[in-house]
Amino acid sequence: MTDVNTKGLEPPDEPEAPTNRPPSMERIRTWLSRPYARGIVILSLIIGVLLLPMAWIVLIPMNVTGAPASEIMVNIEQTVFVFTLVSVPIVSFVYAVLVYSLIKWRGHKGDSIPEDKSPAIRTNTIGVVLWTAVSAGLAFFLVVWGLIELAQITSNSYGTVTADQQPGGEQSIIVNVTGQQWVWTFEYPQHDGVTTDVLYLPKDRAVYFNVTSKDVIHNFWLVELGVKIDANPGAITQTGVTPTKVGSFNLRCAELCGMHHAYMETEVEVMEIESFTSLMREMGGGKTA
């Protein structure tokens, strides 16, 4: 048996007097009295604090072109924010172990085989249980949050409504979106079938999209409004949104559709309902539905 290197690994001295602290606190204190335990905990906290701003930082590039322009996009950004926050603890802990190992647990260097000096820990029940509980708990939280957000977004995007069930009420707009290589066309059935190649949308009105393709799979992505659905040939997919911001936004194709996939972009013009209605009328369509 080789010499055990106990430098820095000595168990702590006995406390001088019995205390009233509960046993579990005692165990935590004992564990924390080990220098590496303290080191890793502190390092986790430091890394955690450094990583925490990521939750806000990731939203900056997302909003650089005017997002969020709808409730859906707000939901999406909330999700990204919360997920980043929730990931920070585990990532910080793992990175803390990596860093601490590289700094404090450096051992042998060179070509010769080192002697066995590390403690032969085959398992640690507390560690395993804690990790499982925390990761399962976090995963569960993410699932529940995600499901709630998904339900919210689904209702915000009216995505489960089929083409013939869409309300043609006074307040809502229906747009038939056709993707084809390599251009988007929009038809407004409620306005005498006016066809445009720029997507005009009214603010604060529910908009339903029926999406299809004339050739290959495209993807209808209203970037700042957080709308995305494939345009499939031979099928009609539905989604919807209520734009909440006036402005000029981007529609990009997000599924490779051939040579000029990169150019399959167009503008999304969100305007007040009065401007929208007069624009439709100008283009030849009174409201017929």
Partner: peptide, 26 residues
């Protein structure tokens, strides 16, 4: 999909646990 992150997390734990208090031959 979110559930599968748990077993993958087990694998990360095993790496971290092996690294724990191990003197590294660099």
């Amino acid at each position: 999909t979110e559930l599968i992150s748990i077993p993958v997390g087990f694998l990360v734990l095993v790496v971290i646990g092996t690294m724990w208090r191990g003197l590294v031959w660099t």
